[in-house]
Simulated assay, not measured.
Amino acid sequence: MGGALAQTGKALDARPVAVVSTPHKAQRAAAARAYAITDLSTRDLHQAVAEATGRRGGGCRPGSRGRCTAG
């Protein structure tokens, strides 16, 4: 589902930021042509989103497990 969403976002002139949990999933996100990829096993989510969006944020808020959810 994530790859399809990344491709749909790009078709709508969005800059999808893929959030993955493993290096293998990061490779799949790159193949789907995500604008930016954040691997939670190696990076802080909030810092990565800030960098990918020029510090404007990505409309995210902490979820129940401390992860970013759409907001």
Score class of each variant (00 low, 15 high):
residue 64 S to G: 10
residue 29 A to V: 05
residue 43 R to L: 02
residue 71 G to N: 07
residue 26 A to K: 10
residue 49 V to T: 03
residue 9 G to Y: 06
residue 55 R to Y: 08
residue 39 D to K: 10
residue 44 D to V: 09
residue 67 R to K: 09
residue 41 S to N: 09
residue 19 V to D: 00
residue 26 A to M: 07
residue 36 A to L: 08
residue 37 I to F: 15
residue 28 R to T: 14
residue 2 G to Y: 00
residue 60 C to G: 11
residue 8 T to Y: 07
residue 52 A to V: 00
residue 47 Q to T: 14
residue 40 L to V: 13
residue 12 L to A: 15
residue 33 R to P: 01
residue 30 A to L: 08
residue 7 Q to S: 12
residue 23 P to K: 07
residue 69 T to I: 15
residue 57 G to L: 01
residue 5 L to V: 09
residue 21 S to D: 15
residue 15 R to A: 12
residue 71 G to A: 14
residue 41 S to Q: 08
residue 64 S to T: 12
residue 61 R to H: 03
residue 23 P to Y: 04
residue 5 L to F: 01
residue 5 L to G: 04
residue 69 T to L: 12
residue 5 L to C: 06
residue 11 A to G: 12
residue 11 A to D: 11
residue 45 L to C: 04
residue 19 V to C: 05
residue 24 H to M: 06
residue 34 A to P: 12
residue 71 G to W: 09
residue 53 T to M: 01
residue 31 A to Y: 15
residue 63 G to Q: 01
residue 70 A to T: 03
residue 46 H to P: 01
residue 35 Y to E: 14
residue 58 G to V: 05
residue 3 G to V: 04
residue 29 A to H: 11
residue 62 P to C: 02
residue 66 G to P: 06
residue 40 L to A: 03
residue 27 Q to I: 12
residue 17 V to K: 03
residue 40 L to R: 09
residue 43 R to N: 11
residue 23 P to M: 04
residue 49 V to N: 00
residue 1 M to P: 12
residue 1 M to H: 14
residue 43 R to D: 03
residue 56 R to W: 02
residue 62 P to Q: 13
residue 29 A to F: 06
residue 47 Q to Y: 04
residue 12 L to H: 11
residue 64 S to D: 13
residue 38 T to K: 04
residue 49 V to A: 02
residue 46 H to T: 00
residue 52 A to E: 01
residue 19 V to R: 00
residue 9 G to M: 08
residue 34 A to S: 15
residue 5 L to W: 00
